[in-house]
């Protein structure tokens, strides 16, 4: 998605950080992949897997994996915008499901940090399953910096 090479950030290597984050724990178990990033956004992808299905009859993915993907993408977008890793916790997250993801398709989630203060980060994002113009979900969330005074 990035038309030009992402900016080099002092003291924070987004590529290395993202590789570490997406391969660990719950993110690693889901199997999320890095797609691309810019100055205040990141895109991750989640391949379809039958063990992540929430409704057996339709084969549609559960909500949880999409929330996890978007939580991860929006989290990383904060560190990219700040240019540093700082411990943070999700304060709240709202997700609207615009339509069901089509079974078998890879879900791509884009998280963007659109406002950053010393203690709070405001993020938004969308997920799609092939066409960014036909999204499956919209997310708005806030993070709190757990180390901020």
């Amino acid at each position: 998605m990035a038309e030009s090479p992402p900016p080099v950030l002092a003291g924070f290597d987004p590529n290395a950080a993202i590789r570490m984050i997406v391969g660990f724990g719950h993110n690693g178990a889901l199997g999320a992949r890095y797609v691309g990033h810019g100055g205040d956004w990141v895109e991750l992808a989640l391949d379809y897997r039958t063990e992540l299905v929430g409704d057996i009859a339709s084969g549609v993915l559960a909500s949880g994996p999409i929330v996890a993907l978007m939580d991860m993408a929006t989290s990383i977008s904060v560190w990219i915008k700040r240019g540093a890793f700082q411990p943070q916790a999700t304060l709240d997250l709202r997700i609207d499901y615009l339509r069901a993801a089509i079974p078998g398709r890879t879900v791509v989630g884009r998280g963007e940090c659109y406002r950053l203060t010393r203690r709070v980060a405001f993020v938004r994002g969308q997920a799609h399953d092939g066409d960014p113009a036909d999204p499956i979900a919209h997310v708005a969330a806030t993070f709190m910096m757990t180390d901020a005074q």
Binding site: F24, G25, G54, A62, S63, G64, P65, V67, D71, P87
Partner: peptide
């Protein structure tokens, strides 16, 4: 389990949201 770990020592928000959804 390791499947639900977010940052080291804590549950992942996505796993908690998954539990609430279920």
């Amino acid at each position: 389990s390791d499947v639900v770990v977010g940052r080291p020592g804590f549950l992942h928000g996505g796993a908690i949201a998954g539990l609430l959804e279920i």
